[in-house]
Design a protein around this nucleic acid. Structure first.
Lengths: 219, 219
DNA sequence: TATTATTTTTAGATTTGTCTAAATTAATTT
DNA sequence: AAATTAATTTAGACAAATCTAAAAATAATA
């Protein structure tokens, strides 16, 4: 079945809200999509006839199985485009959302297949969110602490627990960001500092404290 | 000023038709855009109030100066995306038009700036059509015959005069396509055949006849 | 030039997505 | 449990883009 851009935005909106609350209510979705409750009700009727949602008047709604799959495939497009914008075009990760909102509605599935391949089928987007696979399955990403990563092994940065500006400044200095590939060269027993290699940069040394705030996953 | 996707498509349609005939007529544009004459008339009124076209009822229409610039900037987006699809994602050049039709309506100008830079500001798209610059100026491309290209100089393939399947088969064998970079190593006086290097492939030899059907431009 | 044929425009309807205001249902309080 | 408040839906309107059918203007031809 085919969906309009507006329908796709509603599906995505429901997906994000139901993750938090199970059943979604009209006002919440209206707020999420910057629209009015009456518009939401109109669209709910349409999505119900298209058999994408479970919906009882006055009693909330949520995506059904096929609705969820559609949502995940839209999110897949969104996150692949974000990855492209950041790691190929050089955008900052905080500037790409609005552009990806537009790109995600380009319909060609062949395009997304080739884009995914071109990017090396990444598992995580520049914000640290997992990228659903071609079947709409979210990858299970075992995040481990960088400090626990064995010497000589390589992993990808997926999140950072401390989001303070001081921490972000450090990370920027070391050239570490979500998606960076990190290899541990050695750990110094004296103070727990680690010598690591970030992507294709020269090796550097980070403190135990910094390492413990960085989470990575094996590819 | 902002334009809807539909308005952009009309502007582009007028641009392409006026190149051939000067003034465009309603039926021709309706055919070009797969729509009805009445719909065209409606849109013409709107484009006239937006001061994009010159239009006298019953007497044809064409883009004015600002209309032309808008058209060229849309065409710029279209051709940059086509270039991306072919040379980065690996699409065949004959499969990319429909996808670029969608991508060209993504609105971010920063996106196009960065895409252009990422692609190396190409001057010509995979179909051999020139790519307007950031100001909507079409590059003037001096096409010269590959056979006349001096030894040791490099140029980019822009078009092929013989489009027969036999010719295309040859070009495919040599890995030559629109956009390929060709360096002339030497020319054999005996039969006029040329030793050339195509992009990053190993050198090969093509006949004078083949060379004379290939047109290139200096970057 | 008068008539016919073609092209273009107008008038009015349709679809999609949206809105406001009023009505209905559900939830909360007294 | 009745009254009040909040959430949701309905009714009806609107804008954008499209269409069909009819009217008007232009072009072609006898």
């Amino acid at each position: 079945m085919n969906f309009s851009i507006s329908e796709e935005n509603y599906i995505k909106g429901i997906y994000h809200l139901q993750a938090e609350t199970g059943l979604v209510n009209t006002n919440a979705l209206a707020k999420e999509l910057n629209t009015k409750a009456a518009s939401v009700t109109d669209m709910l009727k349409k999505l119900k006839t298209k058999k994408i949602i479970q919906y009882e008047k006055y009693h909330g709604f949520k995506l059904n199985e096929s609705g969820n799959k559609i949502a995940l495939l839209i999110i897949r497009k969104h996150r692949l485009w974000e990855y492209f914008l950041v790691f190929k075009l050089g955008f900052n990760w905080d500037k790409v959302h609005a552009i990806a909102e537009e790109l995600e509605h380009v319909s060609s599935t062949e395009l997304i297949k080739k884009l995914d391949n071109y990017l090396g089928t990444p598992k995580i987007d520049p914000h640290g969110d997992p990228i659903p696979d071609i079947n709409g399955k979210l990858p299970v990403i075992k995040q481990i602490n960088l400090y626990g990563l064995p010497v000589k092994s390589t992993a990808t940065v997926s999140s950072v627990s401390n989001q303070s500006s001081q921490m972000l400044e450090m990370l920027h200095h070391y050239g570490i960001g979500i998606g960076s590939k990190i290899t541990v060269n050695r750990v110094f027993d004296f103070d727990g500092s680690m010598e690591i290699k970030v992507s294709k940069q020269a090796s550097c040394i980070i403190s135990e404290q910094v390492a413990k705030n960085i989470f990575v996953y094996h590819d």
